Amino acid sequence: MGEDDGEEKSQVRAWVAWLRAGGTPETTIALRRYYVRRLERDHRDVLALDADTLAAWLGANGWAPNTLKSARAALRSFYGWARHMGLREDSPAHLLPTVRVPRARPRPTPEAAYRAAQMQAGARERLAIDLAGRCGMRRGEIARVRVEDVEGDLAGRSLRVTGKGGHVRLVPLPHDLAETILEHGTGWVFPSPRGGHLTPHHLSKAVSRLLPDGVTMHSLRHRCATRAYAATRDLRAVQELLGHSRPETTATYVLAPDDAVRAAMSAAAA
């Protein structure tokens, strides 16, 4: 390893420490660091790159729009930090064009696949499936559930969940799920043999094995959102349940019921 490589790596470490000091979630830090380290592998002196070089690098990887958007955000964060710290006079990443991401179509887990997974799952996987499919929780939120997070409320029990950006919300629990969590006594509900809790990736793999090809654990959140909206027609309530900061995000999770779409057309055609 040359001296320059060590210097570049120390810059990335300093940037990561800066992100942590600002409370950036570890999942976000890991993703952003991945893209910057990948850039570092392709270009030794990343602090000397200009906007044209960054644009060419982004375009050469054949990434889908969502991936391009994540990579661009990572570069903007890194070069913005470098400018703030006086390592550069400008941020070439802030000259990169905005990435337009086509609106995603909701992809709820098919109901037959959901029921089959419940029947085939062991106790641990079944609880994870239900927390995602019935309560709309993210895989990372499920992996970090502790028995102590269950709280009583006026209508029953809820689960205190820390979501993206450190935002805390109370997720209402069905009675059977609350009892299942409390049966674990204390501590992590999804413990790891190595201590602590299972990683979100490990938990997701265990659940995805029970689902058809092409159906992911994340689609269980879409299932929850779709059924919740179909029952309430209240997008704001579904937004709170899923822990989204914007209703526009929630809308991408909700597959509008066919009867509602047809009713909308009939009302307009009348």
Score class of each variant (00 low, 15 high):
residue 3 E to W: 04
residue 6 G to K: 03
residue 10 S to R: 15
residue 12 V to G: 02
residue 15 W to A: 05
residue 15 W to G: 05
residue 16 V to T: 06
residue 16 V to D: 11
residue 18 W to Y: 13
residue 19 L to A: 11
residue 37 R to F: 08
residue 46 V to I: 15
residue 47 L to W: 11
residue 48 A to T: 11
residue 56 A to L: 10
residue 56 A to D: 14
residue 58 L to D: 07
residue 62 G to D: 11
residue 63 W to N: 09
residue 64 A to S: 06
residue 73 A to F: 12
residue 73 A to N: 13
residue 75 L to C: 11
residue 79 Y to N: 13
residue 82 A to F: 11
residue 86 G to C: 10
residue 90 D to S: 13
residue 91 S to R: 13
residue 100 R to L: 02
residue 102 P to A: 08
residue 113 A to L: 02
residue 116 A to F: 01
residue 124 R to Y: 01
residue 126 R to C: 00
residue 130 D to R: 14
residue 135 C to A: 11
residue 142 I to M: 05
residue 143 A to R: 05
residue 144 R to N: 05
residue 151 E to L: 12
residue 154 L to E: 14
residue 154 L to G: 04
residue 158 S to Y: 06
residue 158 S to C: 14
residue 162 T to W: 04
residue 163 G to T: 08
residue 164 K to S: 08
residue 165 G to S: 07
residue 166 G to S: 01
residue 166 G to D: 03
residue 170 L to I: 10
residue 176 D to R: 07
residue 188 W to S: 07
residue 189 V to F: 13
residue 190 F to V: 08
residue 192 S to G: 06
residue 194 R to C: 03
residue 198 L to R: 06
residue 207 V to H: 02
residue 209 R to L: 10
residue 212 P to W: 05
residue 213 D to K: 02
residue 215 V to A: 00
residue 217 M to G: 01
residue 225 A to V: 01
residue 232 T to M: 00
residue 239 Q to N: 15
residue 262 R to G: 03
residue 267 A to D: 01
